[in-house]
Design a protein around this nucleic acid. Sequence first.
DNA 1: CGGACGGTTGACACTAGTCAAATTGAGTGG
DNA 2: CCACTCAATTTGACTAGTGTCAACCGTCCG
Lengths: 230, 230
Amino acid sequence: MGISRKDLKQVIVFQNATDDDLNQIIQNSITRSLEEGEFFFLQGDPANYLYVLVNGQVKLLQTNPSGQQVNLRTIYPRQMFGALGAVREQADYPASAQALENSSALAIKSAFLHEMMETRPYLSFDLMKLMTSYIQEMQSRYRELATERVEQRIARALLRLTVQSGQKVDEGIDLAFSRQDLAEMSGTTLYTVSRVLADWERQGLIRAGREQIHITNPHGVVRIAEGLEK
Amino acid sequence: MGISRKDLKQVIVFQNATDDDLNQIIQNSITRSLEEGEFFFLQGDPANYLYVLVNGQVKLLQTNPSGQQVNLRTIYPRQMFGALGAVREQADYPASAQALENSSALAIKSAFLHEMMETRPYLSFDLMKLMTSYIQEMQSRYRELATERVEQRIARALLRLTVQSGQKVDEGIDLAFSRQDLAEMSGTTLYTVSRVLADWERQGLIRAGREQIHITNPHGVVRIAEGLEK
DNA sequence: CGGACGGTTGACACTAGTCAAATTGAGTGG
DNA sequence: CCACTCAATTTGACTAGTGTCAACCGTCCG
């Protein structure tokens, strides 16, 4: 049930931590287990904890005033989320974190990690490395959203999911996401996603089912993502 | 011409640096002065330096394979840019930095700052704070781009520029940006920006000129940015 | 067996992009 | 100081690409 030192060491940000550090972190944490659909935190909540996902799957999303959602990122086990609050004191979460399936995560007190970072350069440095990769990803996605067509962006979303799911690209990839999920990830509507997928299915690139997408021709999807098609 | 310790201390990331640190930084830096239109670095170049703008104005932009540009951020004096490369060794700049006017910047060796950070927690911590604010801004802009209409996004771009330029919102604001700039900042085309501005001018919200926008009714622009209009 | 939920599809509206052509304005050299 | 040049901007015409809405279908699950 609980998380061990060994598990924690697999987390990128903690890879350079000493055993003693890890023990302290564990002592200042609690484990939270949520059912599918529940939220670890909501956009605007005070960011008192940062989380390390132990198992399950979590999506980070932003909601605009009129309720439309945008999917920022999907979190997989051993990844950290809610970390932005650990940096500034008294910050609020800039996004919400919802469990996509039954999930449990280690909740570390932000204030505690904050304190630790003051004396352990490796910690803020590694966390910063993580942040820079986020920035780069967000910048790229921003550019894509600003300059690319929907079809291309959906293809990119699928490929990103493929990479994150860690499956081999060789022969067929299975992904479990709804049209709505895809739409939120690529900044479009579920209707358009549905039409695009139907089209790809006709071309033999994928086989689509209920909350299920099987990519039969990854190379073809890559070509669309790169904008070589059309 | 050169930059003093006192100047450098105004830079957010160096606010907690000791005088000795600042001296070392200056010793490991050179000053680069560019004419309007020239580039401090191009997307894809090896990120050997990070910069602190001394004077002038610089825009960070990303270009997609087909040459379309997206404006990520405008840099003002005492702000840092090109810092993503300082974190990972042997990284490439993920964006280009172009001088919007004659500008000079302090170029600090990435490897040197990298080394410094290993022993000075405050440095990576403060840099991380900066990164988190970038992430939040990019996330918000991403959501806006995904969910809001062009008019709204242009209004937001104007307001962001207003805040960054540090002018009072009270009675009229002057901004010096072309339609093309605005378009790149809000993810649209210069034609659409031109039409929208013409419309706003008819409504008496702004007065527009060549590379010049005067906001006469800031409150009205805010209403549009918030989506209250229409 | 009956919902409920996810998905599909058609009809239609409409935003915003594209392209071409005209216009304006600022700066420059004579 | 004026004509000239070139970039910035405007505007119209046209339309591709997507969003919107509604109706309908299929299937999973209690």
